[in-house]
Write a protein that binds this DNA or RNA. Structure first.
Lengths: 186, 186
DNA sequence: TGTGACCTGTCTACTAGTAGGTAGGTTGGC
DNA sequence: GCCAACCTACCTACTAGTAGACAGGTCACA
């Protein structure tokens, strides 16, 4: 793992725990083991780091979504895996998914970073629309309304559930908020 | 409006737009028209201000929830009013409800502030449980499952919807995320 | 009716610490 | 020779918070 990758990994962990404003070049430097000024060699401005972060994150999720589609075929299983992915991102209630963390810091992040977050959200919704469409056809998800509405609702729900879990520092809250959704999955 | 009240109002606006870490005594001083040091006379530490803020907020919402219960009697109408309240807090997508804003800054806020947020959430859920119970009985809310699950899901949904609206700086996202819920209301 | 003690609210001027960022120099490998 | 990667040393701007002074009002007591 080269320095750049180490920086990204450290920054992602901090950003998910403290938000965009909650980590500093000084923190990263201490964590990675180089001097603060050296980070500017890899990421001249903080927004460069943030952009790399969100793009790396989006790419990782895209890979994960593909993996889910490969691993299981039923729509209900895919949605279950999607929810488990968000659940896993909590790590005990202390971290959020990067998209949620950056959305909260909306005013601090640069426009291109915000645009990258929007694109990520759109892709997530598109993936979910497909899942709900198939769930409606194969009957593995109960009571499916318009897939487009279901997808947007589902994304808001998992993100809201992350928030609730974080506020209480307990992943149980995430599960509670998703009980009803889980019951719809055959 | 005395100075203390002006400070709270200004701080609330900033906190909802920028989060707990996103406003400073300097900002407040400029906004209210007194010197930075004078704020410390009213709120010695920032956590004192934060605590006053969340308690003022919780009290205001409690009043609003009572007003809703007085104004309309059908469970569906009450839930509609509840959702409208969260929708209204967006003010064009630039602000969040204080509870969401502070939840994101969880690591920065003091323990007593976090505890106050927890209490606020519990009270919101309790209010919603009652609404779903009555909605199940009078049939004004369709397909009501266990009211406790419905309430927690509903809170996560409106908070997640706020987040989505904020990320896109557009309140339309809030409405989209709540289309399915709205359709359940008679 | 003074007068001294005290309180509230505000001020100027300051502290120590941290933020992101920069200038310019030193390595070491291709 | 060149360049990526790193360094030391610094900058400006900002953070919460403190010290101490100064008004103006209130209140008790002689």
């Amino acid at each position: 793992m080269d320095t750049k990758e180490k920086l990204l990994a450290s920054a992602e962990a901090s950003a998910r725990a403290h938000g965009y404003d909650g980590f500093s070049y000084a923190d990263l430097a201490a964590d990675v083991g180089i001097r603060k000024a050296s980070i500017h060699h890899h990421f001249p401005k903080k927004r460069d780091l943030a952009l790399a972060l969100i793009e790396r994150y989006a790419a990782a999720i895209a890979v994960e979504l593909d993996a889910i589609a490969d691993r299981v075929t039923r729509a209900s299983d895919q949605l279950r895996a999607y929810i488990a992915m968000y659940r896993g991102a909590l790590s005990g209630g202390s971290t959020l998914c990067l998209c949620v963390a950056f959305s909260l810091s909306r005013e601090s992040v640069a426009d291109d970073v915000a645009a990258a977050i929007d694109r990520f959200r759109d892709r997530s919704v598109a993936w979910l629309v497909e899942v709900f469409e198939r769930g409606k056809l194969d009957g593995s998800i109960h009571d499916v309304q318009a897939p487009a509405d279901e997808a947007i609702t589902c994304l808001a729900l998992v993100e809201g559930a992350q928030l609730a879990a974080r506020a209480a520092l307990s992943p149980d809250r995430f599960d509670s908020a998703l009980v009803l959704m889980a019951k719809r999955l055959a």
